[in-house]
C-alpha cells in the first residue's frame, strides 16, 4: 500500500474533509504558502494575514491530533512557490506516489490539477449542503434556474425552518420586513476583536514587500 500526500489548500481548513477523515495513518499532510497564490491579484493585507494565520494554526491543530504535516513557509529556500509544483516536490521527497486534494474553489486550479496526470486524485468538497453533482441534477431540464426556486428546494430537503412540510412563519420570504433604512437611534453590538498571535510573528518578508495598504498595492501592481 502506497503512502499518499494530502494537499490542503488555504481555504480548506476543515478537519471534516473526506480527504482527512479517510487518510491512512502514514499519510503526509501538506500545507503550502506559495507566492503564486498571493500575487495573481494583489490581495488585501488583512486577507493575507488571515489566511496565513489560519493555515499555520490549522497545521498545528493537525499535528496535535497526530497527523504528520509538512508546512511550506513562504520564506523556505526550497519552496517552489506554486501549489502543484510544491506538492509534487514534496511527494518526491517523502516517497508518496499519490497526491490527494479536495476539489479546489477555483476553476483555474481545478483545470490545472486535471491536466496534471494520474498521480493526482480529486476528492469532492463535502462542506456544502448541495454537492456539485446534486446542483447539476437540480438544474437539469429547468428552463430557469432562479435562486428562489433552488432555495425552497433546499429548505424542503434540509428541513431548515420547516414545520410539517410548510415554511416556518407561513411564508418563504420575509424580504418585505427586511428593508428598514438606517435609523440614528440604533445601537450596534461591538464585535469581538482578535489579537494577532504567535504564528504571525514569523511574518515573512514577502508579504511585507507586496502589501502595505490597498493604494500601495495598486501602485505596485500597475508599476506606477
Amino acid at each position: 500500500m502506497s503512502r499518499p500526500l494530502i494537499l490542503i489548500l488555504g481555504d480548506q481548513l476543515s478537519e471534516t474533509l473526506d480527504v482527512l477523515t479517510e487518510a491512512p495513518d502514514d499519510a503526509l499532510i501538506a500545507l503550502s504558502e506559495v507566492s503564486a497564490e498571493g500575487q495573481y491579484v494583489p490581495h488585501h493585507p488583512q486577507k493575507i494575514v488571515m489566511l496565513l494565520s489560519a493555515m499555520r494554526h490549522f497545521a498545528d491543530t493537525l499535528r496535535d491530533k497526530g497527523y504528520q504535516v509538512h508546512y511550506s513557509a513562504l520564506d523556505d529556500d526550497d519552496n517552489r512557490h506554486d501549489l502543484l509544483e510544491e506538492a509534487e516536490r514534496l511527494a518526491e521527497a517523502y516517497a508518496c506516489d499519490e497526491i490527494r486534494v479536495t476539489h479546489p474553489g477555483e476553476w483555474r486550479l481545478f483545470e490545472r490539477i486535471q491536466r496534471r496526470g494520474t498521480r493526482w486524485r480529486l476528492y469532492p468538497d463535502n462542506r456544502f449542503y448541495c454537492s456539485i453533482d446534486a446542483f447539476g441534477e437540480w438544474m437539469a431540464g429547468r428552463k430557469r434556474c432562479r435562486m428562489e426556486d433552488f432555495y425552497r428546494h433546499m429548505r424542503k430537503q434540509t428541513g431548515l425552518l420547516m414545520c410539517e412540510g410548510e415554511p416556518a412563519g407561513g411564508q418563504w420570504n420575509f424580504d418585505h420586513d427586511n428593508r428598514a433604512p438606517i435609523d440614528q437611534g440604533l445601537d450596534f453590538p461591538t464585535p469581538p476583536r482578535h489579537r494577532m498571535d504567535a504564528p504571525l510573528k514569523r511574518w515573512p518578508s514577502w508579504s511585507r514587500r507586496t502589501s502595505v495598504s490597498i493604494s500601495a498595492l495598486s501602485t505596485a501592481s500597475t508599476g506606477r
Binding site: 456544502f128 438544474m139 434556474c145 432555495y151 429548505r155 425552518l161 415554511p167 416556518a168 420575509f174
Partner: peptide
C-alpha cells in the same frame, strides 16, 4: 422569523446557489 429566514436564505440559498452556478 424574519431574521432567521433572512440569514439562512443567504447561506442555504445564495451561497450554495452561486457555487452551483459557478461549477
Amino acid at each position: 422569523i424574519n431574521a432567521a429566514e433572512g440569514f439562512i436564505r443567504q447561506i442555504l440559498g445564495w451561497r450554495e446557489y452561486v457555487r452551483g452556478i459557478y461549477w
